[in-house]
Amino acid sequence: MRVFPVYAPKLIVKHARIFLTGVIWVKDLGRLEFEKGRFLLPRKSLPKVKQAILELNELIEAQN
Rank of each mutant, 00 (worst) to 15 (best):
M1S: 14
M1V: 15
M1G: 15
R2C: 15
R2D: 13
R2T: 14
V3I: 04
V3E: 14
V3M: 03
V3G: 06
F4I: 03
F4P: 01
F4H: 02
P5H: 15
P5V: 13
V6H: 09
V6N: 05
V6T: 07
V6F: 14
Y7H: 02
A8E: 08
A8H: 13
A8K: 07
A8W: 12
P9W: 03
P9D: 02
P9M: 04
P9S: 03
P9A: 07
P9F: 03
L11Y: 05
L11Q: 09
I12L: 05
I12R: 01
I12N: 01
V13L: 05
V13F: 03
V13C: 06
K14N: 13
H15L: 04
H15W: 07
H15I: 04
H15D: 02
H15F: 08
A16V: 15
A16I: 11
A16L: 06
R17P: 01
R17I: 10
I18N: 10
I18C: 10
I18K: 14
I18T: 13
I18R: 11
I18E: 14
F19N: 13
F19P: 00
F19G: 04
L20D: 11
L20R: 10
T21L: 06
T21H: 12
T21G: 07
G22T: 02
G22E: 01
V23Q: 14
V23A: 04
V23K: 15
V23D: 05
I24H: 00
I24L: 07
I24D: 00
I24W: 01
I24G: 00
I24A: 04
W25F: 08
V26L: 03
V26F: 01
V26M: 01
V26P: 00
V26T: 03
D28Y: 15
D28L: 11
D28A: 14
D28Q: 14
D28G: 15
D28N: 15
L29D: 01
L29V: 12
L29H: 03
G30K: 01
G30R: 01
G30T: 02
G30F: 04
G30N: 02
G30W: 02
R31P: 03
R31Q: 10
R31H: 04
L32R: 00
L32F: 14
L32N: 02
L32D: 01
E33K: 15
E33S: 15
F34M: 06
F34W: 04
F34D: 00
E35T: 14
E35A: 14
K36G: 12
K36V: 06
K36W: 10
G37Y: 05
G37N: 05
R38A: 06
R38D: 03
R38Y: 09
F39G: 01
F39C: 02
F39H: 05
F39S: 03
L41N: 07
P42N: 11
P42S: 10
P42Y: 09
R43Q: 07
R43K: 10
S45T: 12
S45V: 13
S45R: 13
S45W: 10
L46G: 13
L46P: 13
P47Q: 11
P47D: 07
P47F: 08
K48G: 06
K48Q: 07
K48P: 06
V49N: 03
Q51M: 13
Q51P: 03
Q51T: 08
I53H: 01
L54D: 08
L54N: 07
E55H: 12
E55Q: 09
E55F: 09
E55Y: 12
L56R: 01
L56S: 00
L56F: 03
L56Q: 00
L56K: 04
N57W: 03
N57Q: 03
L59W: 07
L59T: 05
L59N: 04
L59G: 04
L59C: 04
I60T: 05
E61P: 03
A62D: 09
Q63G: 10
Q63R: 05
Q63E: 14
Q63P: 09
Q63Y: 09
N64C: 11
N64K: 05
